[in-house]
Design a protein around this nucleic acid. Structure first.
Length: 157
DNA sequence: GCCAACGTTGGC
DNA sequence: GCCAACGTTGGC
């Protein structure tokens, strides 16, 4: 059982977008990085939990928790010439890009800001805090998960 | 296989 | 808007 962190730009897809989506579920598409693809395709398991992180915005940070509900799905936006994520090298018979479905578990009452994450010594090894890091999918350790969920006393059932 | 050039990411 | 850091591309 691994925990994860999923980055998204809220202008593209925010936690409120997820909250108002049908079944509060969405397909996590558009990832076009091989390291992240490998985690989406090979490592994520149904039932695992992930932090939902807003990046490249006024207030970057963790805004909630989602659950992985479906894995092993090719990212069909790669096949769509009209999609901004179109990649002609990805073939239906041999998809290059994959995604997972996620369902909203909890929107935090307030953001756990990047600044807060940076100032907690227990979180110093978080991948997204490393200088220059750009990975949009990263694993989170048990200790990091406990530390962050404790901010709002979140206990998954 | 090397590596310079380029486009993108993302905090500030 | 700036720019450092990074991943990818493509010529050689």
């Amino acid at each position: 059982m691994t925990y994860w962190l999923l980055k998204t730009e809220p202008t593209t897809f925010s936690i409120d977008d997820l909250s108002s989506a049908p079944h509060q579920t969405t397909f996590w598409d558009g990832v076009r990085n091989y390291q992240a693809r490998n985690m989406l395709r090979d490592a994520m398991k149904v039932g695992e939990l992930a932090f939902f992180y807003h990046s490249n915005c006024k207030q970057p940070g963790i805004v909630g928790i989602v659950k992985i509900t479906q894995v092993g799905q090719p990212d069909s936006t790669a096949f769509d010439p009209k999609s901004p994520y179109y990649d002609p090298r990805s073939k239906i018979e041999h998809p290059t890009w994959y995604g997972v479905s996620v369902k909203l578990v909890k929107k935090f009452p307030a953001i756990v800001s990047l600044d807060t994450l940076r100032h907690d010594p227990k979180l110093k090894d978080m991948i997204i805090l490393r200088k220059g890091n750009r990975l949009s999918i990263t694993p989170i350790s048990d200790k990091q998960w406990q530390t962050i969920t404790n901010v709002y006393k979140f206990v998954p059932q």
